[in-house]
Simulated assay, not measured.
Amino acid sequence: MSADDDDDTDAFALDFFAWDSFSTRLDGIDALPAAPAPFASRDVLAAARDLGTSAATIVSGNGKTRQGIGAIDVDWSKSVAQLLATPDPAERIEHLRAHGLLAQVKALGDAMREAGVVDAAVRLLLDEDDMVSVAAADVIRHCTCANQGSRIRAREAGAIPHLVRMLTRVADAECPAERAASVVTAAVAALRNLSFQNGANRDLIRDSGGLEPLLRIVASGPRVAGQPPAPPAASDFKRREAAYRAAGALENLAADNEENAAAIVDAGVVPAMRELLIGVGRTALSNKVLAECQ
């Protein structure tokens, strides 16, 4: 076991971030059209367009009745250069989404990392356009699923503080309300894959202050003297959705970790979490965090 692997003996509670479960499972997979012929060297946009959302299954098969087409040859170095040279935000988002889709093909992960895809995505976490940052976080999310080398590379490239900063922008209300939920969702999804079986990444997430902005996002509603912190009003739909997603993260952070559970209790946000989670029909999950926070 390497120094970056974690055997969970420290019971570190970033369990919310430990869902290594982004490999696509498709219903009715046998009903998909026949796989195309093997690709020649291809542009990333063309490959993503041709393979579509079933890329992982078309390339690798379903392990049962469907045989994959095998390796595809995409010029990753060229695609990274194109991505970084594209000034238009909409085009950057298109390129990032194409990379994110192909990153779901696990056999491509090492080649993508070696060509600089992870580094490019980390750089674009700092893009001034929030939705470019969201698309970049999604690339990191997929590149770090079932790929320890990419988890290490993303940390070395500085992904974790940038992702925490994305959450902080939402907590500070510097992110437009209509984009808040997307930013929270993308940052949290990337962080949870980064932390899976990687103790160094988990430690850095904690040391970078990953818990604090989640607490503030949950408790970002109007303050009333003598009352515990409240979530955004139900009428503030976008902020409410972001708070709900942050509450789900805190719920899992409290599981099996007394330190995180105590911090959540001390912040006074348990009533806000209860309102958010039970209010959208997740009573069973809410009971878990409430039990941890007694």
Rank of each mutant, 00 (worst) to 15 (best):
R202D: 03
V265L: 09
A115E: 05
G116I: 00
G279M: 13
P176N: 11
D129C: 01
A234H: 14
P176W: 11
A18W: 01
R113A: 02
W76L: 01
D20Y: 00
A159I: 03
A177T: 13
Q104C: 07
P228H: 14
K238W: 10
V134E: 01
A254F: 05
E258P: 10
S77E: 14
R179H: 08
R274A: 04
I152M: 03
R151W: 00
A190M: 06
L124R: 00
T144D: 11
S79G: 07
E94T: 15
M131D: 07
T185V: 15
S150I: 03
V218M: 00
D256V: 08
E178R: 04
D20H: 01
G209K: 11
A47L: 13
V170G: 00
R49W: 01
D138H: 10
A173W: 11
E292C: 08
Q82F: 14
A233F: 05
R202Y: 02
R165T: 15
G149F: 05
A171M: 10
R141T: 13
P33Y: 02
V164R: 09
A262V: 00
L253V: 10
D5E: 11
A18D: 05
P87G: 05
D119M: 07
E178F: 04
M131P: 08
P33W: 02
V105K: 14
D110R: 08
D207E: 13
N252R: 14
N201T: 06
F17V: 02
N252T: 09
V289A: 01
Q148M: 07
S41I: 14
S41F: 10
A189N: 13
E251K: 05
M112S: 04
R97W: 00
S150T: 06
A11E: 14
D130W: 12
D43I: 05
R245H: 13
P229L: 15
L276C: 03
D27S: 10
I217K: 01
A135M: 08
P87S: 07
S208Q: 13
A284V: 11
A272H: 00
V134P: 07
G281F: 02
A98L: 03
D207L: 02
G210K: 07
M131R: 14
A111G: 10
E178A: 01
R97G: 00
K78S: 09
L32D: 10
L83M: 15
V132R: 01
A3P: 15
F196S: 04
G281Y: 09
W76I: 02
Q148S: 06
D5M: 05
D73T: 09
C293Y: 00
C293I: 04
V188A: 08
A56H: 15
A263Y: 09
R42G: 03
A284I: 06
G221W: 04
D172P: 00
T283L: 03
E178P: 04
